[in-house]
Design a protein around this nucleic acid. Structure first.
Lengths: 172, 172
DNA sequence: ACCCGTTCTGTTATAGAGTAACATCAAGGT
DNA sequence: ACCTTGATGTTACTCTATAACAGAACGGGT
């Protein structure tokens, strides 16, 4: 496998941080995992697994679906990426590397998905998570993971309504 | 197509109600759509599209993937079923037929998915929906649809922790 | 250095989810 | 009769995801 892939300095820095975070936890950010995380960060938008696979193959000819899915599973466990259910796609966690501690604890995020430009914004609103947790508890339900996603129009796309000029994969 | 399929009296009653609701709205609950809704109700748990297709074929030999997906799309539009994103599966809406009006307006529901027995409980907590809407608005984001799902352990399965006796498709 | 268990990766094959595109059919309206 | 609209039939595909097993690489203990 070609290990010499270079992302932008900013991303390389994030990858180094991610690597440290993993090491502290006793897990390893191997070359493949690092590369996949780099690709997700580099894209900056939701990435489909097979889209990542295609780009992965540029550096790792033998890559197959399990290669990507294993890497993604690891990154999800480490809280370094999130899966957007409504898109069957993956985004880098905005908060995992800001907070030194990572996202290993109960990290309940919310996602705002813009239909027009495809951008995804990650929120960390404790109120929403707690409200859901409380609503579950009322029914005797114990929540261990949750998915909270909203689809609509972001501020930028509302400002230029007919523009259709943003990079939109999923325009309808 | 064999139209003589009979579900339980309770389900047939629900189907008749659904049929009326559709008629009032100027849409039609055709035989196929009625059958698919019946199968979803009959199952009582999240149903995969191809699982529905298999059962659909027992009565409708020519059924193909588009047959089911078209029926499901219609039922989703009418608010008669919901899609559970975390499971890529469909459940009947608990509230659509209770309230005579159906779910055509902004119907923001939350789902509690039990990992052990596979049961899905539908909530209608306005507080959670509003909190999400408000959080979006703070970022200038206008929400038009949302997904709120929680995975964990239901009250019944917490009572019998080691039992493993419930019908669990997705036991891990 | 060696062995050994664990973890990671390679590889093949397949299951499951969803849609595109076009043909056909049925029901109502004029 | 004709035409429009909505619903279904049919074929073929793309995308998403996992099972199962083989092999390689790593890390710890002796």
């Amino acid at each position: 496998m070609d290990t010499s892939v270079a992302f932008s300095p900013r991303i390389e820095r994030l990858l180094d941080q991610a690597s440290s975070v993993c090491a502290e936890r006793g897990s390893r950010l191997t070359d493949i995992r690092r590369l996949v995380l780099g690709l997700v960060l580099d894209r900056g938008r939701p990435s489909g697994a097979y889209e990542l696979l295609d780009r992965l193959r540029e550096n790792n000819r033998g890559a197959a679906p399990p290669t990507v899915y294993r890497a993604l599973d690891f990154l999800l466990e480490q809280g370094l990426v999130h899966r957007i259910e409504r898109l069957s796609a993956f985004v880098a966690c905005t908060h995992a590397l800001e907070h030194a501690h990572g996202c290993s604890d109960f990290h309940a995020a919310q996602f705002l998905i813009c239909r027009h430009c495809g951008e995804v914004t990650e929120l960390e609103n404790r109120g929403i998570s707690h409200a859901l947790r409380a609503a579950g508890a009322e029914h005797g339900f114990h929540i261990s993971a949750s998915t909270i996603e909203a689809e609509g129009t972001c501020a930028a796309c509302r400002a230029k309504p007919a523009g259709m000029d943003g990079p939109a994969e999923s325009r309808q």
